[in-house]
Simulated assay, not measured.
Amino acid sequence: MASMAVCYSLATLSSTKPLLSHKNTTSIANLKSHERTLQSSLVGTKIAISKITRPLSSRRLGTSSSEITCSASASPLPSALLFDCDGVLVDTEKDGHRISFNDTFKEKELGVTWDVDLYGELLKIGGGKERMTAYFNKTGWPENAPKSEEERKAFIASLHKRKTELFMALIEKKLLPLRPGVAKLIDQALAEGVKVAVCSTSNEKAVSAIVTFLLGPERAEKIKIFAGDVVPRKKPDPAIYVLAANTLGVDPSSCVVIEDSGIGLAAAKAAGMKCIVTKSGYTANEDFLNADAVFDFIGDPPEERFDLAFCRSLLKQYVS
């Protein structure tokens, strides 16, 4: 919506005598009607009011020494909506990624099992390969793991590749559903020409599978994916969101991010973006003090929590 500026002098609003003496002025009845129309048109719109004092030489007969200048603007649309994947698009962690990690460990006879609580702690580390490396460094590497650092990197990469294959099989069978409201919000954004991207620390193939199989190919072709090792540093580092803004050609301050975790929130805010948190199973009790808004989920009517209009409201600015 284009910005709107309205200006009335105090004389126009309070002094009727000069108005009655001029053949081209508006009648009192029409003026009141116009005021009612003005008030109606500004309902729900933020208004900035400033006083302007005119020099004596420029004052017109019957006007006050000051005028009220009102300017109002509708909030701009976001340039881009950037979604995290796991926990935002789909609540994948407990019954998706964790299960796939454990199945991989079992296949490779590593003697390792990540239970629900342990995996919740490991999620504080961004990235699956980084998660496994940190865990083995702390608890000890399996007996059948390589000894050198370079060989261990290749070993971790092979585990992660197999884990991704198992996870994608779950997604292709549609055993893990989209969270409520995700498709709705994406459709609203695409209909308004807002760019949509998914920014995740997960493997790019896994993220692409979620987008393609659960959101459908028509949406998928309009959604840019930034995932996995596309950046050298994972969340809470802002690198992936900075890359997304640069690639999409948008100002970070005009982007709204949908995240579910503390590390994702930290990454979005460090990139200079607005961030809405939709809490997931593992992140419900995390500290989201710096979030611009926090919800249990996005939601579809009649259980809708927010929509594109709410994302738009986060970017509202006063125009003087």
Rank of each mutant, 00 (worst) to 15 (best):
A2C: 13
Y8K: 09
S9D: 05
L10G: 01
L13E: 00
K17G: 12
K23M: 07
T25K: 12
Q39S: 13
I47S: 14
A48N: 15
R54W: 09
L56A: 15
L61V: 15
G62E: 01
S65W: 04
S65H: 12
S65P: 10
I68S: 04
C70D: 01
S71M: 15
S75F: 08
S75E: 07
A80H: 02
D84A: 07
C85P: 02
C85Q: 09
T92V: 02
E93R: 01
E93M: 04
D95Y: 07
N102G: 03
F105P: 00
K108R: 15
V116D: 12
Y119E: 04
Y119G: 07
G120L: 11
G126C: 08
R131C: 13
R131L: 15
T133W: 11
G140E: 02
N144Y: 05
E149N: 12
A157V: 06
S158T: 06
K161W: 05
L166Y: 07
M168K: 12
P177G: 09
R179I: 03
I186V: 13
L190P: 10
N203I: 00
N203C: 04
V207E: 00
S208Y: 07
V211W: 05
L214D: 08
K234H: 11
K235D: 03
P236L: 11
P238D: 05
V250R: 07
D260I: 01
D260Y: 01
A268T: 01
A268N: 00
A270S: 09
K274H: 09
C275T: 04
V277A: 04
T283W: 05
E286R: 01
D292T: 03
D300Y: 07
D307H: 12
S313R: 11
L314V: 06
